[in-house]
Write a protein that binds this DNA or RNA. Structure first.
Lengths: 344, 344
DNA sequence: TTGAAAGCGCTAACAA
DNA sequence: TTGTTAGCGCTTTCAA
């Protein structure tokens, strides 16, 4: 019986298989397979013939057949909310470096900050029987948690810290970031401190950052209700608009913590254009310490977060566990660092 | 015979299979398969039992088995030089949106601008029998070209324009960008015009851009040898250093075309810090029109390139061909646009 | 050093 | 409406 037509989505490539190579090389079926896997156990002349045929025909081993036998594929899904944020891209890049070096391929999944999508994505991706999984964030739907537990595969949650990680965990505490930034600004003498950002209610990490931030303000008897947020994706320009809105509504505001450096930079540029002095009139601090923060004039204060390193470490830990090696620490707090520059 | 142990890389998840589900649901083998594929052809009660078992066991269909039957997988490798460049990330994001919507998964490949790596990557990725392929650039090694021709699968080369594309092609002419920028600067009255960037000899697109740029200068009897380049990855700070080097070596230089906006911004910031007037003392123009270009004070002139749209279009064309639909235009020139702002 | 046979999980055809 | 059979491409074991 030929391949069922209904599954043949399209007139495809001439699927070269081992028998094809064998025919071409004038050798037996198994000889080809063996030449490819254990070249040593095949006569020199035979091997040369086989390799020649492989090359001529452009034979590429079919991962499906292998995967079906082994029950697992050298792929690692990386699930992030969006590619439209340099932080996740840096993570991805770091992880890719390490995974590629170990022969793993990345399957990309972007959830758009939607838990439903995350759930579907994970289910679909699990169908590839990946050896491991890299998952952004530590707050997932119950269904997702259950699925992941059932799958029982090596996995690393990253970008945030979990009390009870599903598998391994690499990140830092966003709540602590909020606290640290608030304390920093208070120490510097600011008293009317605002937060500006996006996804202030959707993204668990933002929520935690804001919670730590506001709690600290409250503990210091300072107003903590100055918040500007937007449902549109963050951008440099949005930062400017958010700052303008904030100052308009509450002229007393003297410092603003932005959800990331792009928005902080936009706020700074807006001030530059409108002649608002930074930090004299209003202080600005960003988040993530992207390169732009250290480059502007004046340079923007920020919070350094180790995202590339996080990617490398998460991948390294995952690889170790996939290979069955012991992993010393299953939960790593990478910390963060406040970078005090010219805008605070 | 059990699964061969040597292929079992590790103690893995308890691979739930259709027979497992069938046993749990107390129904036959095929009934489960059918419930999943054609729910209509199964009795209501049976179906409920099956779905219940599927849920309880956390069954996920094994893509390998399907792939083995159909000979192709709903995955699309996207091969780019690096994730460390916003342009490729935007493309990736655009492509991912479209591909995800059509049920395709992205397999990520980063070549690091290395043709050898590109070749290996493509070979490995072809083993997944992807239905299609997205490939950055149009300049590939002969071996790569041959492999791709043999594979005979739908593919789109993007980011640049090819005379003779391997498959489909979406991009714009980097040579023309170079010409246009040179003409623009000449028209504005600049006479000592430099290029600054990275990968000036490695990346075919840079090479073409510079060629068009220098040819135009030459045609206008202007010096065309002012070039500053670096082998390190581009960055905002590098832009500053490159500009400083250029002005030091050739004080006559009155305009610089940067290989991207990050470097242009770095150059601008450097000028701001050192009190060099832009554009009076030196004009600056970037490339790609990233958001930063329009946001700085003064705003940076640049060349707008349609990278997200390119990703969406490339993916759309690919999907069409993968589904066997006709594709009107197999080679699309998306063009570019010079954005004249305050730095030129 | 090479060949033969079995089976990984699933689905399409056919039969009941 | 459900069960049976065969086979996708490959690797492993066992036999020659």
């Amino acid at each position: 019986m030929a391949t069922p037509r209904s599954l043949r989505h399209h007139a495809a490539n001439p699927r070269v298989t081992i028998p094809d190579v064998a025919a071409r090389a004038g050798v037996g079926w198994m000889t080809v397979s063996r030449t490819l896997r254990q070249p040593g156990s095949v006569a020199e002349a035979t091997r040369r013939k086989v390799l020649k045929a492989v090359k001529e025909l452009g034979y590429v081993p079919n991962h499906f057949a292998r995967g079906l036998l082994s029950g697992a594929a050298p792929v690692v899904p990386v699930i992030i909310p969006t590619l439209d944020h340099p932080v996740y891209v840096s993570f991805l890049d770091g992880a890719n470096q390490v995974l590629a070096r170990h022969g793993y391929q990345i399957l990309l999944g972007a959830t758009g900050y939607d838990r439903g999508v995350e759930e579907q994505l994970i289910t679909a991706l699990l169908g590839w029987r990946p050896e491991g999984l890299l998952l952004a964030g530590v707050d997932h739907s119950p269904a997702t948690r259950k699925r992941l537990k059932q799958a029982r595969l090596p996995l690393v949650e990253f970008m945030d810290l979990a009390e009870k990680p599903l598998g391994m965990n690499v990140g830092f505490s966003h709540f602590d970031v909020g606290k640290a930034v608030a304390n920093h600004l208070i120490q510097k003498g600011y008293r009317h401190i605002a937060y500006a950002g996006t996804l202030t209610e959707t993204d668990a990490k933002s929520v935690k950052r804001i919670a730590g931030f506001q709690q600290t303000l409250r503990e210091n008897k300072l107003p903590c209700k100055y918040v500007a947020s937007s449902t549109e994706p963050f951008s440099i320009h949005l930062g400017g608009r958010l700052l303008e809105k904030l100052l308009e509504r509450n002229p007393k505001i003297d410092a603003v913590f932005f959800g990331n450096d792009d928005m902080a930079a936009g706020a700074l540029f807006s001030c530059l254009r409108r002649g608002i002095r930074v930090p004299e009139r209003v202080a600005i601090i960003g988040f993530n310490d992207q390169e732009i923060a250290g480059a502007t004039v004046p340079a923007i204060s920020s919070v350094a977060t180790p995202r590339r390193k996080m990617g490398e470490l998460a991948a390294t830990m995952l690889v170790a566990q996939m290979k069955g090696e012991p992993v010393a620490q299953r939960r790593v707090d990478l910390g963060f660092q406040i970078i005090d520059r010219e805008t605070t």
